[in-house]
Design a protein around this nucleic acid. Sequence first.
DNA 1: CGGTACATTGAAGGGGCTCAATCCACGTGG
DNA 2: CCACGTGGATTGAGCCCCTTCAATGTACCG
Lengths: 262, 262
Amino acid sequence: MPFVRKLSHFVALSPGEIAVLNELQSDRLVVRRHREIITEGRTYDCMYVLIQGYAIRCQVLRNGGRQVLNVVLPGDIIGFPVTFFERAQYTVTALTDAMLSPIPHASLISLTKHHPRLAAKVFWSFAIEAAMYVDHLTNIGRRSAVERVANFVLEMLVRLQVIGLADENSFQLPLTQEQISDAIGLSAPHLNRTLRELRADDLLDLQDRRVIIKDIEAVRALAGFQGYHFNRLHLPEPARAIDGEGQPDLAALFATADVSQH
Amino acid sequence: MPFVRKLSHFVALSPGEIAVLNELQSDRLVVRRHREIITEGRTYDCMYVLIQGYAIRCQVLRNGGRQVLNVVLPGDIIGFPVTFFERAQYTVTALTDAMLSPIPHASLISLTKHHPRLAAKVFWSFAIEAAMYVDHLTNIGRRSAVERVANFVLEMLVRLQVIGLADENSFQLPLTQEQISDAIGLSAPHLNRTLRELRADDLLDLQDRRVIIKDIEAVRALAGFQGYHFNRLHLPEPARAIDGEGQPDLAALFATADVSQH
DNA sequence: CGGTACATTGAAGGGGCTCAATCCACGTGG
DNA sequence: CCACGTGGATTGAGCCCCTTCAATGTACCG
């Protein structure tokens, strides 16, 4: 289960919590390539965990311009923030045939009640999405074309490594150059020229939907890559927790596993 | 309490819930103009509600470039996602003298346990932040200078109206032109020229930190402004909630107010 | 074989940047 | 009261990065 794998990378999960998470993702749903998973303007009562496949979140402007907000990888949750509003803010499209697991909002609320600490961990993980948007923002707002490509490629590398879909310095990525260019705010021709430059300098190569980073250190230096949000999440630990109300069952509240029936 | 006011705009709150939220924000902290509230790279055990004043979230690049990620207004929570990681991803700086209320992470977790439905509402509200980042992304990635300014100004108008700090078509905004330009990915000179254009066309005016939108409809048309995330939040309602496990206390779980001691 | 999807390349132009210089309001100290 | 410093707004000149609009190339596929 890629979601558990990814979440484990960011925060400790007890066996009981893992069981609950797997239970949550027991429903399955298949979406074919190029179909929309979420459609802008519509209403949704659930989120989706992407079990297998790839997708993009995407906004379209009246003049035809597109912004690819984000690439969705296996283990990512589709639905934050988009399904939390009465009308979806953007569209999510499957890039490949994809397998999803719907998670009704009601289940999340229910989790909040019955497994509060686990729910907090899930909500905490939404911070990762938000942090990625933040980094994209600086990337697009304040960097040159080469720097943008370098950052994009490094982000993908690290995210794919977390879920075991990238090796040391290369990975598959089912995006066309046009989609990549829409993700980093460039025109497709200019992205192509920028890639040529990077290839000429032996920094990285992109062919047949495969990215090979030939000189990671150089690319990292070029990108000014920080990647703070690939650090672990920071939840209060039981030992340090302080609660003004002095609840009697405080210790239980902050116990690592709040799952009793397993 | 601006946070309650803002949250009420997005989701229904019972009197009991409002009381709990006010209790949460009882601590006070003053930060002077130009001081940092959150510093990149450091660790935090609490979030802050901005009670009064203004702030900006901001990332700095090695080459000196800055990206203003966001303007923080009264009622906004400072700390999502930035304090949820072991190292803060960006810096938050007070633009004016500011009053804050610290909310320990532990209190949030505690809320999850004791007032699960209210906690869900608070976590749900984080989607608003993320949705704003998403809109900034398309704004910066795919729009021209005039369009960016139009969008920026409209977003500020609506956000300030929600908390009662803007009238029909104008508002104070304590940002220099340089800071605004860093927010929308332009250079300061070019922002200035763009403002001149907009002023010449009688669309809007910016003087002495005050924005006056002279022709809202025209600006809105120019911006292609959607503002989906100013819609209400969409939580499951008690009536429609479905829980696979068939918990006996389901009705209680989804009751609007889950606060008993008030 | 023609059609589709995508990568690649070229030429031309413009939108926005860089780097200043200037202006202006304001506060501060001599 | 004026000289000066400072932070910010405004304007100008030059240019380059990137866009636009094609055309061309190249797989793959029914």
